[in-house]
């Protein structure tokens, strides 16, 4: 039966339910995931390439192309959210 979702600012997410899959030794990751902390002020901003949309065009943006300019990089939870 469908359940009415609560309205909120975070994007509703789902995931697998039910019994946990039986773990076999192969499921154990062989490499330890790199632990990342918060990036530090005074250090280089990590470079990236991202597809995007601007004024009717689909574009690709590379952060390092903005060297020589001040940049405000703003992340947000998702399009069509309320805040």
């Amino acid at each position: 039966m469908a359940e009415k979702a609560e309205v909120g600012c975070a994007r509703p997410t789902g995931g697998p339910v039910g019994e946990e899959p039986v773990k076999t030794p192969q499921d154990t990751p062989k490499t330890i995931k790199e632990v990342r902390g918060m990036i530090k002020v005074g250090q280089k901003a990590p470079d990236f390439v991202s597809p995007g949309y601007q004024k009717g065009e689909f574009i690709n943006i590379k952060l390092s192309d903005y060297l020589g300019k001040w940049v405000l990089l703003c992340f947000y939870p998702g399009d069509f959210t309320f805040v």
Partner: peptide
């Protein structure tokens, strides 16, 4: 999703 993070990056690419 991503939190509302806002980064000021200077012309040298430094945060």
């Amino acid at each position: 999703v991503e939190a509302r993070g806002r980064f000021i990056i200077d012309p040298d690419g430094v945060v």
